[in-house]
Design a protein around this nucleic acid. Structure first.
Lengths: 304, 304
DNA sequence: TAGATTGATACCTTTAAGGTATTATTCAGG
DNA sequence: CCTGAATAATACCTTAAAGGTATCAATCTA
C-alpha cells in the first residue's frame, strides 16, 4: 500500500476521468492508469467500472473512498498533533511542588503556562526536595519547584523569584504594633520551625541568619509546612519566619512584619529544577514562561 | 508523507536501534538513517534522541508512534472492508418486492442470503413491476422480485421458483369437498381478481387460462393483493386463484384446491430481475443464492 | 589509550514512478 | 453504415528516489 496510490485514487474517484485526474495531479495519463491498476491488483478488488465516458466507482470503490478519506484525515491529525508536541504545545508535564511552596508564585507561573499552552496537561506532585531529585532522575517528573539548592552535576535550575523573609506574629505579641522588626529581637522569642529534611534547607537558612545575628533560636514547635505554622501563630504558639508569598494566608490574629537590621541574604529564592540533558520542548516552553514571569516580576519591583 | 517511512519509524521506535531495525526490515543501516532523517525533516519534529547506545523516542516521537499505530490499523481495516465489499460480503442491497409476493419463497431466499452474507444489509421496498423497472434503471434498487415478465433489452431475470396455481375456496362452497377442481368448473363462479397494473400481469395469465378453457371469468371483486383476496374468500365473497405459496395463509373458512384438466402453463414463475450490465459482487452473490435455492427446491420436488 | 559500537556521510547501483507515442474500443453524427 | 472524437490501455524509454558498500566521527568500555 502506498499513499501516492491513495491520493491518485481520490483524484480519479473525484473526477471520474483518468485524463482530467492526471491533469489535476500534474502527471500524464498512462502512469495514472497504471497506478490505479496496481491498486486494484493489490487489493484484489475492482474499484472502478470503466465506461466509454470515464471511470465510475463500484460499490466497493465507494466504500474505499470513504476509508481513504478517513486515512488522510488521521494522517493530517497525526502530523498536526506531533508537530504541536514537538513545539511543546501538546503533552503532559509532571511537576513537583513542596509542601507550602504552592503559594502565590507557583500558581501564577502555572497559570501563565496554562494560558500560553492550553493543550499541555500539567500533573502536580507533592514532593520534598530529595524526592524531587530522585523523581527527576527516574524521569517520573520533568520539573520541581524548590527553595534552597545545592548544585548537582546532573540537575540544572532556573530562578523563579526572590522573596523577602517576613515574621508572622500574633496580634497580641509585643511586636505587633512595630512597623519593622529588628532581626535580633527574635533572640529568646519562641519560634515555630520546620523539620530539616534535605540539606540545605529553609531551616538551615534561618539557623544561619540567627547565628550571624549572634544568637540561637528558641524552637517552640516543629511543623511540616508553612500553612500549619501560620495557623499556630494565629493561636499564639509563637512567631514564625515565612517567605513573602505566605502573606496570601490572611488568618485572623496574624500579621506579617518586615525585618530591619537583618543580616545579608535575608531573602529566599524560589527556583525550579530539571534534568541537565533534558531538551524536551515542553520543558523549554515552561522555562520560557518562568523567565518571562521573573522578568515581569522584577520590573514590577523596580517600578514600585 | 510516505507509509514506508512510517513502517521504518515503527521499527526503529520498537528496536531503539537503527542497525537492528535495519536488519529487521531487510535493508542496510544507511538508508534507514536517511529515511528517519527525512521523516523528521518533513514533520519538522525531532522524533528520536540519539544516544551512544541507540535511539530514544522523544515525547513527540512517543505520541507519533501511537498515531502511526492507529494509521496502520485504519489502513488494514480499510483494506479488509473493501475486499469484503469486493467479494459482495459487505454492503447494502436494495431489493423490491411486490404486494403479496412476500410469501414463502422470497423470505426463504432472503433468509438464506442473510445467513451466507451476514454483513450485507438488505433494504426492502414495496414496488409493483413498473416501479421496479424504473427504480432499477435509476439504480435506486439492484433487484426486484416479480412473477410475470416481458423481456426487456436492459433487464435480465433469474427464475426463483415455479409454483402451481391453486383455487382458494370457502369451506361452504360446493367444491370444498372435492380433492381436485376441474379448471372449467370456474365457469360462472364469482372470482376475486387483481387489478391489471403493468402488463403482462398475473391477471392476464388468469384471463388467458380461462380463455383456453373456453369461458370468461365472472369477476366478483377486484382487490390489491393476494392476502386481501384470501380474506375475502374466507368471508364468502367467492373464490380466487393464488400461487401455491399463498397456502401459508391459513385462514379459517378457506381451503386450497389443486386444479385438474387445467390448460398447459397453469403454473406461475417467480423471478428476480436486475440490470443487464450490473456486475456488482453483491448482485452476483445474491443470484448465486437464488440459483442454489432453485436447485435445492427442484430436487425436493423430484424426491417427493 | 585502544577497541568496539553507535549513527552519519559520500558515492554508486537498482528499482519504480513518470513521460511520449500509439492502440483498441465505444459512442455520436453525418 | 461509416468516420471521427474520446475513452482507457499498452509498449517503450527517461528520470527520480530508494537501497547498497565503504567509510567516518563520536562515544563509551576495558
Amino acid at each position: 500500500m502506498d499513499l501516492r496510490k491513495l491520493k491518485y485514487f481520490e483524484a480519479v474517484a473525484e473526477e471520474k476521468h483518468i485524463g482530467r485526474a492526471a491533469k489535476l495531479l500534474h502527471i500524464s495519463q498512462p502512469p495514472l492508469t497504471r497506478q490505479i491498476h496496481q491498486l486494484e491488483e493489490e487489493l484484489d478488488v475492482v474499484l472502478f467500472n470503466r465506461t466509454p465516458k470515464g471511470m465510475e466507482l463500484t460499490d466497493a470503490g465507494e466504500l474505499f473512498r470513504q476509508e481513504v478519506k478517513n486515512i488522510f484525515a488521521l494522517i493530517d491529525q497525526a502530523t498536526e498533533r506531533t508537530q504541536k508536541a514537538g513545539r511543546g504545545e501538546l503533552g503532559r508535564l509532571d511537576i513537583a511542588t513542596f509542601g507550602s511552596g504552592i503559594l502565590d508564585s507557583i500558581p501564577q507561573v502555572l497559570l501563565a503556562f496554562k494560558k500560553a499552552y492550553p493543550e499541555v496537561s500539567i500533573v502536580l506532585h507533592q514532593m520534598d526536595k530529595g524526592e524531587q531529585i530522585k523523581a527527576l532522575r527516574q524521569k517520573r517528573i520533568s520539573l520541581g519547584f524548590n527553595r534552597i539548592l545545592s548544585p548537582l552535576p546532573d540537575i540544572r535550575s532556573e530562578l523563579v523569584t526572590t522573596e523577602a523573609l517576613l515574621l508572622a506574629v500574633n496580634t497580641s505579641d509585643s511586636m505587633a504594633n512595630m512597623t519593622h522588626v529588628p532581626f535580633d529581637s527574635l533572640r529568646d522569642k519562641p519560634l515555630i520551625l520546620y523539620p530539616t529534611s534535605n540539606r540545605p534547607s529553609f531551616v538551615d537558612k534561618i539557623y544561619r541568619l540567627c547565628q550571624l545575628s549572634g544568637f540561637s533560636p528558641v524552637v517552640s514547635q516543629e511543623v511540616g509546612d508553612a500553612v500549619t505554622a501560620v495557623a499556630l501563630v494565629a493561636s499564639g504558639f509563637g512567631s514564625c519566619i515565612v517567605p513573602e508569598s505566605a502573606t496570601v494566608l490572611s488568618l485572623p490574629g496574624v500579621i506579617y512584619k518586615p525585618f530591619i537590621n537583618a543580616p545579608d541574604e535575608s531573602s529566599v529564592d524560589l527556583s525550579c529544577i530539571y534534568r541537565k540533558g533534558d531538551n524536551s520542548p515542553l520543558l523549554k516552553a515552561f522555562l520560557k514562561i518562568v523567565i518571562h514571569y521573573r522578568m515581569q516580576n522584577s520590573k514590577q519591583v523596580v517600578t514600585r
